[in-house]
């Protein structure tokens, strides 16, 4: 009862939003679609939630075909779009009641599923949804997407623009939902969130770059990666970029992540070069790749 996507393509006029996308999400898996704005994430979600026809290819969700069985899919999935899409002029409770009624159920019947989340906004149940803070809107939207006990939950960029604390709490909620047997497809532009998924698809410009567990993706990073540090960041970056043997140079927190084109690269050579550029306090050491390193390597 997962998701199966086979050779899906979708274009808008000349823009190819999705190009020959295929992947499987196993039942009860927490699967991440990781990519920047414009990668095609929302188009993919809209096709899988039966709001948009693909130009080519087929897909099933919870065993149902996205075109032929669209009504059955709508009853068995929950969808939280990236843009807040509840009724601003209904209260928190009215919104939840509305969605429960539409799906032929009641708040009481599935309260157990949303309790963890809803309890945090219940003190504001008489407030209009439009007057809630960002974090509270997000919790209400998730409650509404869950109230009919869906088999599959679609979350399109639930954490975009959300601060690290709220993001962490949101992912903890997702883990608890997964333990209740729900299959979750979640998209995010934050690469660090990939590590919280069982498996991820890295996506850019409508194409999947790689599908695997987050651990396997970083393990397959093709070359040796180095942390380079010096006192002057700007000068360090420009010097590394003019080094004739550089392969990639990306600022990464307090370091620059550097890869070299040579297989027998000796960090001492680089150090000598950087010193000749009047940089001081130079440190060069091996480091492990992150999902973001892998993404950048795959997308160039």
């Amino acid at each position: 009862m997962g998701i199966s996507v086979t050779n899906i393509s979708k274009s808008y006029k000349n823009a190819k939003a999705l190009q020959d996308i295929s992947f499987e999400v196993k039942p009860n898996e927490l699967f991440g679609i990781i990519g920047p704005d414009g990668a095609g994430k929302t188009t993919l979600f809209r096709i899988l939630t039966t709001l948009l026809f693909p130009d080519q290819g087929t897909a099933t969700v919870a065993g149902f075909d996205v075109v032929k069985d669209y009504k059955k899919i709508r009853n068995s999935v929950g969808y939280m779009p990236g843009k807040f899409s509840l009724y601003h002029d209904l209260t928190v409770e009215e919104n939840l009641n509305f969605f429960a009624t539409i799906f032929g159920t009641t708040i009481e019947e599935n309260y157990n599923l949303i309790k963890d989340i809803y309890i945090q906004i219940e003190p504001f149940k008489d407030r209009r949804a439009g007057k809630l803070s960002g974090g509270m809107k997000q919790k209400l939207a998730l409650s509404c997407a869950l109230i009919h006990k869906p088999k599959v939950l679609f979350l399109d960029e639930p954490t975009t623009g959300v601060d690290p604390v709220s993001r962490k709490e949101f992912w903890e909620m997702l883990k608890r939902l997964q333990q209740k047997g729900i299959t979750i497809l979640v998209s995010t532009p934050y690469m660090d969130e990939a590590a919280l998924c069982d498996r991820v698809a890295l996506i850019q410009d409508g194409k999947i770059l790689q599908i695997d567990t987050p651990e396997a993706i970083v393990k397959h990073y093709p070359t040796s990666l180095y942390n380079v540090r010096s006192t002057n960041m700007y000068q360090l970056i420009t010097s590394l970029k003019t080094y004739e043997h550089h392969h990639s140079v990306y600022p990464f927190g307090e370091f620059v992540h550097y890869t070299d084109t040579r297989s027998d690269f000796n960090p001492e050579d680089l150090k000598v070069y950087l010193e000749s550029k009047t940089l001081s306090d130079i440190q060069i050491e091996r480091t492990e790749a992150t999902i973001e390193d892998s993404f950048m390597e795959l997308s160039t």
Binding site: M191, Y234, I237, Y250, M296, S299
Partner: peptide
């Protein structure tokens, strides 16, 4: 104010290089 939200990781870094340059 949150200049890089949703931007791909490579562009995000190019953006920061522009910031470093301006600060420099």
């Amino acid at each position: 104010d949150e200049p890089t939200g949703g931007v791909d990781p490579i562009t995000r870094r190019q953006f920061w290089e522009m910031i470093y340059k301006a600060a420099h």
